[in-house]
Amino acid sequence: MFSDSLMKKIGLFAGGVLFGTAGVKILSSKDAKKVYTTCTAAALRAKDCVMKTVTNVQENAEDILAEAQQINEERAAVEEAAVQEAEEDGAASSDNGKM
């Protein structure tokens, strides 16, 4: 009456429907809800940990930036003083030559 391949297809379809129905019931059970809740709580804890680390890294980066700016300001002041000193030496030597 029915060929073997048609019976296999019907059997696979019926098995899929049963497996799908059982899967939905399992996924919506109280035990599954507990698992989902536990996993969500763990994800939130991980998020908190990551955010603390990010905050720490940002604070360190701000400190590094402030120190680097201070170093550059000090270096610029030293270079400016050296330029002024060189200009004064040059002006003094040209004044000595005029006398």
Rank of each mutant, 00 (worst) to 15 (best):
M1R: 10
M1T: 11
S3F: 04
S3P: 03
D4G: 00
D4K: 07
D4I: 11
S5F: 02
S5N: 11
L6C: 08
M7W: 07
K9S: 13
K9G: 02
K9C: 11
I10T: 12
L12T: 10
L12K: 15
F13R: 05
F13W: 11
A14S: 12
G15W: 02
G16C: 07
G16S: 06
L18F: 12
L18H: 08
L18A: 14
F19A: 14
F19W: 09
G20E: 02
G20A: 08
T21D: 01
A22W: 07
A22H: 06
G23H: 04
G23Q: 02
G23T: 08
G23P: 00
K25W: 11
K25T: 09
K25A: 13
I26K: 04
S28Q: 09
S29I: 04
S29R: 02
D31S: 13
A32R: 09
A32G: 01
K33N: 11
K33G: 05
K34I: 02
K34W: 01
V35K: 12
Y36I: 09
T37N: 12
T37H: 05
T38N: 13
C39S: 11
C39N: 15
T40D: 10
T40I: 11
T40E: 14
A41H: 02
A43V: 06
A43I: 01
L44P: 00
L44Q: 12
A46I: 05
A46V: 01
K47Y: 04
K47G: 06
K47C: 03
D48S: 14
C49D: 14
C49G: 13
V50K: 14
M51R: 12
M51K: 15
K52Y: 05
K52H: 06
T53P: 01
T53G: 15
T53C: 07
T55Y: 03
N56R: 12
V57T: 07
Q58W: 03
Q58P: 01
E59N: 14
N60E: 13
N60L: 11
N60A: 08
E62P: 00
E62F: 05
E62Y: 04
D63I: 06
D63V: 00
I64Y: 15
L65T: 05
L65A: 13
E67A: 13
A68F: 03
Q69C: 06
Q70Y: 12
Q70G: 04
Q70N: 14
N72D: 08
N72K: 10
E73Q: 09
E74V: 04
R75W: 04
R75M: 08
A76M: 08
A77Q: 14
A77G: 02
E79D: 09
E79G: 00
E80V: 02
A82Y: 01
A82D: 08
A82E: 13
Q84M: 09
Q84K: 14
E85I: 03
E85H: 07
E85M: 04
A86K: 08
E87L: 13
E88D: 10
D89K: 05
D89V: 14
G90Q: 06
A91S: 07
A91Q: 05
A92L: 10
A92C: 04
A92H: 00
S93Q: 10
S93D: 07
S93G: 00
N96A: 15
N96S: 14
G97Q: 12
K98L: 13
K98I: 15
M99D: 10
M99Q: 12
